[in-house]
């Protein structure tokens, strides 16, 4: 997998936020403040934050669905709306957004993006059909592709939604709370599936979540968000001090089955270590955050 270290400094960023702030109409304060963040092509970045931290706002800005109040965003060097129109962005929303009563099979849902922009009298071509088949296979949806979308399990639905995003052959895949309601085993399977997808397609992945285990399972780097960017580190650099700052009063509730190595925690409590806004390589060390096997 490509990581930031593999990319030349001059390479076009998959996403580049430059001092981005956004304030909703009628709100007296910005939901996100002064965010500067660069996501490298081929990287898997986790954006971690509690509810109300501005994660969805950040995603909507990256998708071009919201215009930032200040600052600028580019996706592979283009304005987000242009990138979206070019179908460079595959977005997987939280599952509650879709109308699951729709009489559609999993395969029909996955094939949806291939028909957009096509002349009404034309049928999807061979390349589009191959993209759908590949997306179904990579995400492990082949076994239930003919089932109605409303009758698959939560984990299967999540995979189908990712397959749908991949069927459009995007360069960037944005996943909003992808493992909500999925158990620890399912999360490990999910991380393996993402690794396979990135290996095969070279797609850049951004995962937005409040679940630490999702971040721990395979992200190259993690950006901690609570209005502003509190830290930008490797998953191993997520120390109790960093998490306490991000989650404030929610620290106890978020640990779940994640272990934090006391040695790494002590090492990273050093205030000079990885608490800035600029990208770093993380705290390093052998401990930090890891998901239970």
């Amino acid at each position: 997998m490509k990581t930031s270290a593999d990319q030349p400094e001059t390479a076009t960023a998959a996403i580049e936020f430059a001092r981005v702030s956004h304030t909703y109409n009628g709100s007296g304060f910005p939901t996100i403040r002064d965010i500067s963040l660069r996501v490298e092509p081929g990287e898997r970045l986790g954006i971690l934050g509690p509810n109300g931290a501005g994660k969805t706002t950040l995603v909507r800005v990256a998708l071009g669905l919201l215009v930032p109040s200040s600052g600028s965003v580019t996706v592979f060097g283009r304005a987000p709306a242009e990138a979206r129109a070019a179908r460079w962005i595959g977005y997987v929303p939280q599952r509650s957004v879709a109308e699951l009563a729709f009489p559609l099979s999993v395969q029909q849902v996955v094939a949806m993006p291939t028909g957009v922009g096509m002349k009404p009298w034309k049928r999807p071509g061979v390349r589009a059909q191959e993209a759908v088949s590949r997306a179904l296979a990579l995400t492990g949806c082949g076994g239930f592709a003919d089932l109605p979308i409303g009758r698959v399990s939560g984990g299967q639905l999540q995979r189908a939604m990712i397959a749908r995003a991949l069927a459009a052959e995007p360069r960037l895949l944005v996943l909003d709370e992808p493992t909500i309601g999925i158990d620890a085993t399912g999360q490990q399977q999910f991380a393996k599936m993402l690794s396979l997808v990135q290996e095969e397609l070279g797609v850049t992945v951004v995962i937005v979540t409040h679940d630490l285990r999702t971040i721990a399972a395979g992200c190259d780097r993690v950006a901690c968000l609570h209005g502003s960017l509190h830290a930008h580190v490797s998953p191993e650099g997520l120390t109790p001090a960093v998490l306490a700052e991000v989650f404030r009063h929610e620290v106890e509730g978020i640990f779940g089955s994640v272990h934090i190595d006391a040695h790494t925690a002590a090492e990273c409590d050093d205030p000079t270590h990885d608490h800035g806004h600029a990208p770093t390589d993380g705290c390093g060390g052998e401990g930090g955050i890891r998901a239970d096997d």
């Binding site: 998708l63 595959g90 929303p93 559609l104 939604m161």
Partner: peptide, 23 residues
């Protein structure tokens, strides 16, 4: 309806997903 059927179905199934898909 026939002309817009694919966009309509995508939108009706998942508005947010359709918007991110360029609709």
């Amino acid at each position: 309806l026939w002309w817009w059927r694919r966009r309509l179905v995508f939108w009706a199934f998942d508005e947010v997903g359709a918007a991110s898909g360029g609709i």
